[in-house]
């Protein structure tokens, strides 16, 4: 480890130091440190407490404080692994790890399943999917009649819900995304490959000798 603690840094990192987080994820130590620069910006945008609350998360996504969004809220809840209403740096790194281009597909499929399992029942249910479609329409210019929405749901569940019990289980979801791989596109952020280039200032704040990691 490097020399003395820099101001404010320990407060953010707690016990989750970059070497430990890198060992648990696809990220290198430098990449974890670069993510810390991003984390600092987001977590101090409303309250500078070293944690990201939902308002800060939505603000970072939309650059707009007032927007209420089902999907952003859902992603936030999944990032908030400890269910404390806030995301700490460890949660942030471990969650973004799922979105790394090198992370196994299985992990991405698992995360996307949880994302769409709105009521946490262990299934993707038709009523939840309808709720998400309505939320999408609410945030876009797109207009669809209820009959058209029901048609889309019929078609989707006919294909995805193999045993036709009205809900999609994990095995059915795996099968469905393997036939529709574009659905996993949102689960990969190519940007994460270049995170050290995006946040070069991590070098000045680094406390870790990369060779020692």
């Amino acid at each position: 480890m490097g020399c003395g603690p820099s101001k404010g840094r320990r407060q953010y990192l707690g016990n989750e130091d970059p070497v430990f987080l890198a060992s648990q994820t696809t990220f290198s130590v430098s990449e974890v440190e670069a993510l810390f620069e991003l984390f600092k910006t987001i977590s101090s945008s409303v309250i500078d407490d070293g944690l990201i609350n939902k308002e800060e998360f939505v603000l970072a996504l939309f650059k707009n404080r007032t927007k209420e969004n089902l999907f952003a809220s859902r992603i936030f809840d999944l990032f908030d692994v400890k269910h404390r209403g806030v995301i700490d740096f460890g949660d942030f790194v471990r969650s973004l790890h799922i979105f790394h281009p090198n992370t196994p597909l299985e992990d991405k499929i698992g995360f996307s399943f949880k994302l769409y399992d709105l009521d946490n029942t262990g299934f993707i249910e038709r009523k939840g999917v309808k709720q998400m479609l309505l939320a999408l329409l609410g945030e876009s210019e797109m207009k669809l009649a209820d009959e058209a929405i029901e048609m889309i749901l019929d078609k989707t569940f006919l294909e995805a819900d193999i045993n036709q019990d009205g809900k999609i289980d994990m095995t059915e979801w795996q099968h469905f995304v393997s036939k529709n791989p574009s659905l996993l596109k949102i689960m990969t952020l190519p940007y994460l490959r270049d995170i050290t280039t995006a946040f070069p200032s991590f070098v000045f704040n680094s406390e870790v000798d990369e060779d020692a990691a």
């Binding site: 479609l133 889309i152 659905l183 995006a198």
Partner: peptide, 25 residues
């Protein structure tokens, strides 16, 4: 045409699911 897409293709279009925005891009 939205009706030609499956529900999840449509849902994927939500800005709230586009985490690229977190990076300020």
């Amino acid at each position: 045409q939205p009706v030609a897409m499956n529900a999840f293709e449509l849902i994927s279009m939500s800005k709230g699911l586009n985490l690229e925005n977190l990076f300020g891009t």
